[in-house]
Design a protein around this nucleic acid. Structure first.
Lengths: 314, 314
DNA sequence: AGACTTTATACTCATTTCGAGTATAAATGT
DNA sequence: ACATTTATACTCGAAATGAGTATAAAGTCT
């Protein structure tokens, strides 16, 4: 009579940038795979999904969430294990709601958790030093095999997907993080922790694994953030109160995984009125000191959709 | 020992455009408020959230979902009633996952459901005939009251929100559908069906009410669709196999709630290679016949992010 | 001190895109 | 014939974009 229970898992990719390294907060339990801060939604105590999330994160990492945004709700059977602690006859199906949170890097105490560079999980996503060699040497050959592993129309569909995600003719679209991850997942090229690695060894396992669907959530987070950069001033959530324009540029580049044209970046930021000079200057080890700027919070009230169009790669 | 149960509600805004009227499929039970097709996710029988949704929609409307996209997951207490049929001591908390689906208008049999023009629920969102008079005559005065109903900083924050949503200095942003709805909701200017209408009569109730949070989901759907138009060729999901450029333009205008510049729209569509001529022509009642075009599905394989930038209003 | 390195910042320039028109063509109805 | 309606081609200036060059301000090296 009683239906199978449902449990709602709340997971969050908490992102910050240290120097030029975009990072995500992971819970590192020894011997286990990296996991995002995670906990079940408890309708008796949580007024909203987001407040439930805040509570879990607070408990697990002693961390106060600032800017937070819901990403997606995943409900696929087979990409999650039942939550522990339930009697097996009533094993709950887990539906997973993913979030993105942004924060300034605080070296503060975050017990049992660590900042990890996100490109460790997605090494093919960092194009700041040019196209990652692994795409041509590992990914494309393996995907070619995957394409050939299907018949007729399905093979054609796979070929088209490969081309859109990694293709040579097309320009790199830094926002297609999730599409690329899903393609690699279906091709068996990324392994996650819950999966029976029966086929392991046959194909290269790309990037570091995570627990359950956490890497999928992280991919969604990166994609969303890369998109949002361009039409909302979200970068400033990641910056110190004052910063040089180059620091701002490096942060954007770190997130987008691209190099940008310096002079044009500066022009863009200035024209948009996103930023105002403080009259103070940095004291660099080498080179001319740069003026320190601060974010003009007022733009949020003035302009409807301010952001940093990235322009093309340099 | 047993926690409060959670139930996951799946709701979908199925959108089509008939002529120049963007419409949504609603279940009209007599005496009750309009509702979107809706049903609980059943983990025992549904492999994914989306397949569960498809099943419910099939049952309720005999309708096959085509293009479908997840919108958002709402979990707020107080914007939903417990699902019926559960004993009250275990009343389930409902978490609501909203979807958007697009379809060509089929006058086919959709029992117990009807197509409704979506501007009936959001009359302030249709600017094709210029700024709706109700904004200045009803909405802004009521929001002014709402602003004054708060103290100091909160009042200031409300004023800023009003300005961003409906403000005079700023250009109309057709994508802020959800922000505007939420503002009106908080100001008590829209009533929904489950709410105790204690304060009714004090303030104007704008637009037609819907069940629970269904109007919120519809607002999210409209906002998402208006945004997506610009960078993905989703309009074509709503068009007949062949169409004139003016029909295409009228459809886009209906969705965006804006008038567009005809010559520039045509230039855009042509340059983007989204469309190809069939060599055949329409036979209009009046005026010169227009060439019939079809969507070039290939662009999905060629170009990474095709869409119809709208430009500004005419 | 003067040359050289490093980073910051100002300014230029050609190309493309965008918004808003004008001009002309092809149908119908009176 | 001519007014009306809709389609489609073409123009033109303003703004945005991509890719520079030029110059300034610091420190280091000899």
């Amino acid at each position: 009579m009683s239906k199978d229970a449902i449990s709602i898992g709340l997971s969050v990719a908490i992102v910050s940038v240290e120097g030029e390294k975009p990072s995500v907060l992971v819970i590192a339990r020894l011997g286990e795979a990296d996991a995002l801060p995670f906990g079940p939604f408890d309708p008796a105590h949580h007024r909203t999904l987001e407040s439930g999330l805040r509570e879990w994160v607070g408990q697990q990492t002693h961390f106060e969430l600032g800017y937070t945004e819901q990403l997606y709700t995943f409900g696929d059977r087979g990409r999650h294990l039942p939550a522990p602690g339930l009697r097996s006859d009533r094993a709950a199906r887990v539906v997973s709601v993913g979030y993105l949170a942004l924060t300034r890097q605080s070296a503060a105490d975050v017990p049992q958790s660590e900042w990890r560079g996100w490109y460790q999980y997605f090494p093919w996503e960092d194009w700041r030093g040019g196209k990652p060699a692994m795409i041509d040497s590992v990914i494309l050959p393996a995907l070619k095999k995957f394409t050939k592993g299907a018949e007729g129309a399905q093979s054609e569909a796979r070929r088209a997907r490969v081309r859109l995600c990694f293709g040579d003719g097309l320009p790199w679209d830094e926002e297609k993080v999730l599409e690329r991850y899903e393609l690699l997942y279906e091709a068996g090229l990324v392994e996650e922790y819950f999966r029976d690695s029966g086929a392991a060894g046959q194909a290269p396992a790309l990037g570091t694994a995570m627990l359950y669907d956490h890497r999928r959530i992280l991919a969604t987070a990166i994609a969303r953030l890369r998109g949002k950069l361009k039409y909302r001033p979200v970068v400033f959530e990641l910056m110190a109160p004052v910063f040089t324009l180059l620091e701002l540029q490096r942060t954007v580049e770190a997130l987008a995984g691209l190099k940008l044209h310096k002079q044009n970046f500066r022009r863009l930021v200035a024209e948009q009125g996103l930023v105002e000079g403080t009259g103070k200057f940095s004291t660099p080890a080498r080179g001319r000191p740069a003026e320190l700027f601060r974010f003009r919070r007022e733009v949020l009230r003035e302009r409807p959709a301010p952001g940093l169009r990235l322009g093309t790669r340099r």
